[in-house]
């Protein structure tokens, strides 16, 4: 390789140049995700037995999961476009705030757990796996939207985007499950709703990664 070969490459790239259509602004997929979440929320609100608002710590957990979800999705979308690291960092911070909120609820409830440990929460989750399963199923449309955007953009770190898209979308699903779940028990809400991304996101990680990697490396040309 030499300066001459760089010149040859520049000439080749220039000769290969074709008009391209720009990737949409980040706020467009973000609004899409919000609209998708609201329409799903409207659907599940008419679900029979959707009255879990009276559950202890309903609101802090709901907000915690919501902030965590928006952080994960914000990071995943931002990492699909070069130069948007600042937005991605805001997403990381939101994830931290959401996780801190959930951890705060867990700490205040700590003394009341029959066995206050992660293994207890894991056992609780296995008992109520249906909530985790529902959160993961609800996550699929959100994940599909992020992956669709990622495939049309330029993902620099496929594993990182897949991981954040997975945890963000499962958290979105967990918010809905948290709203409709009839089980009025704080331990269940923590283990099966707030920690749903820990159990559900790994299931989506590899499919998300493979879907992102399958993208065409060439930009979309103007028809």
């Amino acid at each position: 390789m030499s300066q001459r070969s760089t010149d040859v490459l520049v000439a080749e790239l220039v000769s290969d140049l074709e008009p391209v259509s720009r990737v949409p602004q980040l706020r467009i997929p973000a609004f899409g995700l919000l609209a998708g979440w609201m329409s799903l929320a409207a659907t599940v609100s008419i679900w029979p037995g959707a009255q879990s608002v009276g559950t202890p710590d309903f609101l802090p957990l709901f907000l915690g999961i919501g902030v965590f979800a928006s952080g994960g999705l914000c990071s995943a979308l931002a990492l699909c476009i070069p130069g948007r690291e600042r937005t991605a960092r805001i997403g990381y911070a939101l994830c931290g705030v959401g996780a801190a909120c959930v951890a705060g609820v867990a700490l205040t409830r700590h003394a009341t757990f029959p066995s206050a440990s992660l293994s207890y929460l894991a056992a609780q989750t296995m008992h109520d796996w249906i909530c985790v399963g529902l959160a993961t199923i609800f996550a699929v449309p959100f994940l599909a939207l992020v992956l669709r955007f990622g495939r049309s953009a330029w993902v620099l770190r496929h594993w990182v985007v897949s991981a954040y898209a997975g945890i963000g979308s499962v958290s979105c699903g967990a918010m809905l499950v948290h709203a409709i779940c009839a089980e009025r028990c704080a331990e269940h809400a923590l283990g099966s709703h707030a920690l749903a991304p820990i159990w559900g996101a790994p299931l989506l990680l590899i499919p998300a990664y493979l879907a992102l990697r399958r993208r065409s490396l060439l930009p979309r040309r103007v028809p």
């Binding site: 390789m1 760089t6 259509s21 330029w154 490396l217």
Partner: peptide, 20 residues
């Protein structure tokens, strides 16, 4: 370093639709 510069130019070409 020269290889990396060429890789950057290739990446720029492929990712050019993501610039706003």
């Amino acid at each position: 370093a020269e290889d990396v510069v060429q890789n950057i130019l290739l990446a720029l070409h492929r990712a050019r639709h993501t610039y706003r």
